[in-house]
Each structure stands twice: as structure tokens, then as C-alpha cells.
Computed example of a mutant assay.
Amino acid sequence: MTSVIDRSIMINKKKVKNRILMPPLVCFNWGNEEGFETVDRAEHYALRAKGGTGLMVVEATAISREGRITDTGIGLWRDEHIPQFERMAHACHQEDSVVIVQLVHAGMKAVGTPVYSSSAVEVENKQCLELSLEHIERIKAEFIEAALRAQKAGLDGVEIHGAHGYLLSQFTSKQVNARNDQYGGSLDNRLRLSLEIVEGVRKATGDDFIICYRFGVNDPTLEEDKYFAKKLEALGVDILNVSAGIGANSKNLVPPEDYPYSFITYMGTEIFKQVDIPVACVFGIKEPKQAEYLLENEMIDMVAVGKGLLADPNWTNKAIKGEGVNICYNCAPWCKYGKDGKTCPWYGK
């Protein structure tokens, strides 16, 4: 009997061989201040592609020096960054995996000074400045230019990071966005920047390039999230990868008592009901039986397996064959794999 995980799915015009997605897990120490890798990402992603994973999302990649999450993260703000992504694309394609890269501006969570956001706010004793309209236009251009570099590198698409409290999340969330111009106030205004970036990337890269949106559950009502998801679909987003946002811990976003997984996973299954494009859910999916439950019950299109794929690069092939997988220990305070790829307790086992 064929595993439900092993069913292919079309994303834009690309056939993804199964329903497992590797989410953009940042290896924070694997780069330098200029956005270049210091540990081979091609090998890192190729191992998971060889292990059967259908869709690879390369970790959060900065669109500018200003927008870096960390000073040792990789970037796509210069043409000189393209070759490292060419190697990743080639390595994953050799294993018949589709591969895209997540593009991010961290906003008030960025390293260095000054930092910018939708509105002026103090963050960890650091003053965050409100973006001017001119600065917003520059950031839109930087997203588009980074997407074009990803396309030139041979990647199949990009994921625009609109979750986890980074810049686009800071615009969509009324908990942070206190602007009184066209980018603040009403829901449509708060969504404007994300939608303009999606529209610009689609126009620049053409119809065949995959656009994924990392969708953060940012606001206190599910109705706003449903509205946003439909707007993204209408603009040509090909897949939604649903995760947490600034307002994700709202008491209004509580799954039913009998729901077996996290509220973040639950929100992915709720967004799945609203759109006709593929939707992926994430968070705490470590065992194949969890992914199978979600897929067999038609609650989602794809399942993102994060730390499980760090603990076991062959997670997907094992899941398809019905074999046991390495179960992530969820090391505290941080994932040990991210240190150097070799400190994980499962490394080499």
C-alpha cells in the first residue's frame, strides 16, 4: 500500500514528489558578516533531499545587510551571493527535490543599529525607527532583486517571510503597526506591503516561478487571517506555509480540546479550508504517524518536518517505507544541530 506521504503534488508547474516539506531552519552560526556561508549548505540540504524530502525551503536569507536576523546568516543582497545558492539548487535537483529560498527582512529584530519597523518602538533597550515611505520602497525593491538572484541561481522559487515577528509580520500586526498612512490602520493598509511585494516578485520573475508565503497567524481573529490568505492566493501565491506570528498566542486562537497537535498546526489546517492553493502546516511534527494523520484526514496538503529532518536526514524515505525515524530530543536551550551540524546527539547515527 502506498503511503499517503508519498503522493505527489503540483506547486505552480513543478511536481513535488511527496507531501513532506523541509521548513527554513536557520543554522545561525554557519556564515559570516558578509552573507556568505562558512559551512557547506549544499551538502546540508542535499542530505535531506537524498533522504526523500520533496520540497526544500532554504533557511531565512537576508535581502539586505540592514535586514539580517543574525550577523552570521546568509544573504542574497549581492550578486556575489548567487554561487552558493547555485550549489544548493544543483545539489537538491540532483535528488529530484524542488528547492526554494526564504527571503526575510527582520525589521525591529535585525542585528546592528539603527533598526527599523512599521512604527517607532523600543525593543530590548534599543530604539526602533519608523520606516519612511521612501525606505519602504527600497525594501520592496530589495525583495524583488533578491528573488531575481534566486531565480538566476536556478532555484525553483522563493518564500516571502511574513511570520515570526519579522518585518512583514510587524506591518500586518496591529499590535506593532501604529502608522496613520497607507501602510497602517485598516486591515487592508496593514496587509499592503506584503501584497505589494508579492505582486512585484510575480511581475519580475514570471508566472512559472514558485512564490510561497510564510504566513504568520498575527492577529486576534481568524477572520483576518482568512481574508489575508485569500488575498495572497488572488495575487498569485502558489503555496502558504503557515506558522506563528506576533499575535499567535491570542486566547481567540485556541484549537478544539480533542485536537491532537499544537495550535500553530491547527491554524495551518484552518487556513487550508479557505484557499484552493496548497497549504503546509508545521510545529512539533516529529513522527511519521503525525504527518500521516494530518494527510489521511485531508486536513492539510503538505506537512513541514523541521527538527525531525535535522535529527534524521532520511526521515522522509523512512516514513514512506514505514520504518522508524530518529526522534529529535528537542535539546535546550537551543537546537544543537545549528551550532555546526555535528553537535546534534543523532549526528552520525
Score class of each variant (00 low, 15 high):
G216C: 02
G245R: 02
P256N: 08
I264G: 04
K226P: 13
Q182V: 12
A204K: 06
N177Y: 00
M267W: 03
Y259Q: 07
I271N: 07
Y227D: 15
I239G: 09
S194P: 04
E257W: 00
I210L: 11
D208E: 15
I239S: 10
R179T: 01
I239P: 12
F209W: 06
N249D: 14
E223W: 02
N218L: 03
G268E: 02
I210P: 10
E223S: 14
N180P: 08
T221F: 08
K230E: 15
T269E: 07
E233W: 07
G206S: 10
K174G: 13
V237C: 10
P255K: 00
G200P: 02
T205G: 08
V237I: 11
G200A: 11
D238C: 10
L222Q: 12
D181E: 06
V242W: 05
L195Y: 01
L193P: 01
L191K: 11
D225L: 10
F215M: 14
R214D: 03
L193K: 00
I210G: 11
A204E: 09
Y261V: 02
G206W: 04
L240S: 09
G268V: 00
D181N: 07
A204L: 09
I211L: 15
I197S: 06
I246G: 07
Y259H: 07
L235K: 13
I246L: 15
